[in-house]
Design a protein around this nucleic acid. Structure first.
Length: 254
DNA sequence: AAGAACGTTTTA
DNA sequence: TAAAACGTTCTT
């Protein structure tokens, strides 16, 4: 399906002879290969209450079947990778919903509460009560430290520590090469965002070869102005606003 | 504020 | 390892 749009930004006679080095497609192959089921706008615009929390806790068969690593082995995903991945975005939704429902706790759920709710509870037990939920929390922990600041939580001056995985928290990540700054701490190490791949500039196939970015590519290190993703043009932080709905579902930020 | 330059990250 | 390009800082 060739939906690529080649909006002639400027009159672009040079497009015909774009340099061989210049990609003749709107996106990096990795972006084109993206398996995102939804566009970014989907996640921004879709009201989260429509999402079934249970479905998030227990992935659908289709989700479970999806191989964690499609083809060749890749590096372990960093936090933002998880957020940007389809599952990551679902995790974000899940986190928000869980917080609203009061389910997202850092400490294991009390078993006393889980018990004594009647015989039928046993059936529920296997599908998401505290007993089974705790492992999920443990498995989910890796996104939690990143989740909280994104969702508007403070992490106690950086001394937040997971009770579920102990010393493997942030320190483990740092050991794996994830610098604190790349975890969202700001500064020059902030992790790169990716192009949405769907806006008009992203769909544009060729560099104009005329704009300052094209002409000054060697020094400027910038993509053609007419191919600059609309999402990337916006200052980062929009996600925080979305997730910051937190308690009341209304955010006064911005 | 906009653009240029550079550092850095990410990918092939 | 090089190329592409995002993020930040500097300059105008």
């Amino acid at each position: 399906m060739s939906t690529a749009v080649d909006i002639a930004g400027p009159s672009s006679p040079d497009q015909a002879h774009s340099s061989a080095k210049i990609p003749n497609e709107p996106l990096r192959p990795s972006l084109k290969r993206s398996s995102h089921p939804y566009s970014l706008s989907h996640y921004i615009s879709t009201p989260s209450p429509a999402v079934d929390v249970k479905g998030l806790i227990q992935p659908s068969p289709a989700q479970e079947q999806r191989p964690a690593q499609p083809s060749k082995p890749r590096r372990a995903p960093s936090w933002p990778d998880m957020w940007e991945s389809p599952s990551g975005l679902h995790l974000a939704h899940a986190a928000e919903l869980l917080m609203r429902a009061g389910l997202l706790a850092l400490t294991p759920a009390t078993t006393e509460q889980a018990s004594g709710s009647g015989p039928e509870e046993d059936e529920e037990d296997s599908s998401g009560c505290s007993t089974d939920f705790q492992p999920f929390l443990g498995a989910w922990f890796p996104f939690s430290p990143a989740l909280f600041p994104l969702a508007g939580f403070q992490m106690g001056g950086g001394h937040w520590r997971s009770t579920a995985v102990g010393a493997e928290g942030i320190e483990g990540l740092v050991a794996e090469g994830y610098s604190p700054s790349s975890l969202g701490g700001g500064g020059a190490g902030r992790r790169k965002r990716k192009r949405c791949g769907e806006c008009v500039p992203c769909r544009r196939q060729t560099n104009c070869e005329q704009c300052s970015s094209c002409r000054n590519r060697k020094r400027g290190h910038q993509i053609c102005k007419y191919r600059k993703c609309e999402e990337l043009k916006r200052k980062p932080g929009g996600l925080r606003v979305v997730l910051g709905l937190g308690t009341n579902g209304v955010s006064g930020t911005n």
